[in-house]
Design a protein around this nucleic acid. Structure first.
Length: 200
DNA sequence: CAGAAGATCTGC
DNA sequence: CAGATCTTCTGC
């Protein structure tokens, strides 16, 4: 298992998003290590993307997105949910990849404990806010470094290649209003994967 | 300063 | 299918 280096993130969000499919997202948190294998992500491309939080320039909320690649951007939405992104591209671009779904592979018991109402493991991290809930991610992880020395990181292992060689579907992004780039095929998902947020 | 929308999830 | 729930941004 190899931690992804800074250069991995310092590329266009579309490339980073595609290559994150099949990678592990790990967090050495207060209750031990938790981790998922990513099966669904979306690219957000800053000033050229009306769906991006960074489209109209930097605000207090989006400071991290405009910073250097290789950090986590966490935001709050709908009055109760946290969503996590990987900052990519170059400093000042506000490019990011939203983590939409993964298959739990480390610390599954801890994830079940955080989501006691969920009976089916397939739903533990099948959605951007479900994923953060399962992994215990909130505001306090905003800006966390994913690079060497940090407690959160992405990694590739012997299975990752297989996901990259297999078909990866490209579909419109979920939950965007019209005129926000809702027709752009910037969502990447393993087709029909049982741990994705919905059928593809 | 008020109003509206929001990269969603759950339970009925 | 509607309700929860509150931050963030925009427009006046």
């Amino acid at each position: 298992m190899r931690r992804l280096p800074r250069a991995f993130y310092a590329r266009d969000a579309l490339e980073v998003a595609r290559d994150l499919i099949g990678c592990l997202f790990l967090f050495d948190g207060p209750e031990g290590r938790v981790g998922v294998r990513l099966v669904e992500v979306e690219a957000y491309r800053g000033s050229i993307d009306p769906g991006s939080h960074g489209y109209r320039g930097m605000t207090a909320r989006t400071t991290v997105m405009f910073g250097p690649p290789g950090r986590l951007y966490v935001y709050f939405t709908y009055g109760m949910h946290w969503c996590a992104n990987v900052v990519c591209g170059s400093t000042g671009q506000a490019a990011a990849v939203l983590l939409r779904a993964g298959e739990p592979v480390e610390g599954i018991e801890a994830m079940r404990a955080r989501r006691p109402a969920i009976r089916d493991d397939r739903l533990l991290a099948a959605g951007p806010a479900r994923l953060t809930q399962a992994m215990g991610i909130d505001k306090s992880q905003n800006g966390a470094s994913l690079l060497r020395g940090g407690v959160m990181w992405f990694a590739e292992d012997e299975l990752t290649k297989g996901y990259r060689r297999a078909e990866i579907a490209e579909t419109p992004r979920i939950g965007l209003g019209s005129g926000k780039g809702d027709e752009l095929p910037w969502r990447f998902v393993v087709p029909g994967h049982p741990y994705a947020s919905r059928r593809s």
